[in-house]
């Protein structure tokens, strides 16, 4: 699995490519935590549009990142989940606490809107 980061204001986007399982989740979560620390990012978007496979390790990885983002009073969003990924994530109730959009641009727009609301 490969990972790329994009930074915009205080939002970091992690673009994941490949297969997300127990093996790949081990390094992916370290990479994301490290990048958030280095860029001092508060908010996180996980882009799953290029992920071809995910099992329950994905749930653990998402929930772990969610906890860290919340510790810093940040927001987190998911985007580009396939129907299979949604089925798995729904079983664990992920979408009841983390919002999800089809497109990365939409997730970015929503997070920025929230940031502006908080400044008011």
């Amino acid at each position: 699995m490969q990972i790329e980061f994009e930074m915009s204001d205080d939002i970091i986007t992690a673009i994941l490519t490949g297969e997300l399982d127990h093996h790949s989740a081990l390094s992916i979560r370290e990479d994301i935590d490290h990048a958030m620390q280095v860029y001092r990012a508060k908010n996180l978007i996980l882009d799953f549009s290029s992920v071809s496979f995910a099992d329950s390790s994905g749930i653990g990885m998402i929930m772990g990142r969610y906890k860290k983002v919340k510790e810093k009073d940040g927001c987190m969003m998911l985007c580009g989940c396939s129907v299979y990924m949604k089925r798995i994530f729904e079983m664990a109730g992920i979408f009841t606490i983390i919002e999800e959009t089809e497109e990365r641009g939409e997730a970015m727009r929503q997070l920025k809107e929230r940031g502006e609301e908080n400044e008011r």
Binding site: S56, I59, G60, G64, A92
Partner: peptide, 19 residues
């Protein structure tokens, strides 16, 4: 059972058997 895990500290979801 859903959400059961013996290793909660390691970001396990406990959803393996449910899936």
């Amino acid at each position: 059972a859903p959400m059961f895990t013996t290793s909660a500290l390691e970001e396990r979801s406990g959803m393996g058997f449910t899936i």
